[in-house]
């Protein structure tokens, strides 16, 4: 158990390293570039630059990455007092959802040219991934907001211990299954125009993952299998396990986004199960009217949760 935690921790650290390397600026002389407000971009240089160069707007072009032909109109560029940061002001508000390409022609610093630099501005990729994750856990919670996976949800939310066990098993299975289906979709189904086989392929992959984890766990860690094995079979009958791969395919997510979305779906399910189990444990002591005992009251509580989760909607993080 402890070893597996260590391994997963290491994996996460490695991933963060890889990702943070990915979002560095493209040029050595440019230290940083970022959006500032609705219509400004700020660029920081490694050293002071010439103010004649910096004040000539024709040295700079900015365009949205998918539209290389449309240059955005720069209204003004102002250099800071220490001459290391430059602020561009644009005529029209920028659409910060898309990455922007900023080209600086022949940067002049210390009296000599530093060459032309092109930087890509985007919202911080890590922050974006985090918002995908949090979005799947809270804002688009699969149980309370998307209404999926209810059979399993109502079935195993009687006790906290079973809820947590199910949630963890589910998270592991869904991460493996969605990553597998992402690879297969991206590299086999899509290039060969076999989209219509999505359902049959994904459900097969899910069963395969469940069977695989079952076999491995049985051999490697029988004690763990004893406590979690029961839930493995149940996982297949939850809609979420199929809905996540289908969503990944429909939205063309990249690998890390897919990982985050599936992880978020799993954690969101765990959260939902835990919340529901806590309430239902208390409910056993309550005096519920006879016709409402069992399923009906569970539904009404889920409804209340769903209403409260509506409060997360529209929350945007970064």
């Amino acid at each position: 158990m402890r070893r597996s935690f260590k391994i997963s921790f290491l994996l996460i650290v490695m991933m963060i390293c890889v990702l943070s390397g990915k979002c560095r600026a493209g040029d050595r002389f440019i230290r940083n570039s970022a959006f500032k407000g609705d219509r400004q971009i700020i660029v920081t240089f490694a050293g002071p630059v010439s103010d004649v160069w910096a004040n000539d707007i024709s040295n700079f072009t900015v365009n949205e990455k998918p539209d290389p032909d449309i240059m955005l109109e720069i209204e003004d560029s102002t250099l800071s007092l220490d001459k290391t940061s430059l602020v561009f002001t644009f005529k029209d508000p920028l659409n910060r959802e898309v990455p922007h390409c900023l080209t600086l022609k022949q940067i002049i610093a210390d009296g000599r040219s530093q060459g032309t630099a092109t930087v890509t501005l985007r919202k911080n990729y890590l922050a974006h991934l985090f918002s995908v994750f949090l979005g799947a856990v809270l804002i688009q919670n699969f149980v309370f907001v998307k209404y999926l996976g209810l059979c399993v949800f109502l079935g195993v939310s009687q006790k906290k211990s079973t809820a947590v066990g199910m949630g963890i098993t589910f998270t592991i299975v869904i991460v493996f299954a969605s990553m597998l289906s992402w690879f297969l979709y991206r590299f086999v189904l899509k290039p060969y125009h076999l989209d219509f086989l999505q359902v049959i392929v994904f459900i097969g992959l899910v069963s395969l993952t469940v069977q695989g984890i079952d076999t491995v766990l049985r051999k490697v860690n029988p004690a763990l299998f004893k406590s979690f094995g029961v839930y493995l079979v149940l996982v297949i009958s939850s809609c979420i396990i199929l809905a996540v791969p289908l969503m990944l395919a429909a939205n063309d997510y990249d690998m890390f986004e897919s990982l985050m979305l599936s992880l978020g779906a799993g954690v969101g399910f765990l959260l939902a199960l835990f919340l529901m189990a806590s309430v239902r444990e208390r409910l056993e002591l309550a005096n519920v009217p006879t016709p409402f005992r069992g399923m009906p009251i569970a539904f009404i509580i889920t409804g209340l949760f769903a209403l409260s989760f509506m409060g997360f909607s529209g929350m945007s993080l970064f």
Binding site: T290, R293, M295, P296, A298, F299, I300, G303, A306
Partner: peptide, 22 residues
């Protein structure tokens, strides 16, 4: 008409079925 109301509708209807049965 809101999505969350589906839970309440089903909850109350199942309760009604149970009551009729008893």
């Amino acid at each position: 008409a809101l999505p969350a109301a589906g839970f309440f509708t089903i909850g109350f209807m199942t309760a009604a079925f149970n009551h009729m049965e008893t």
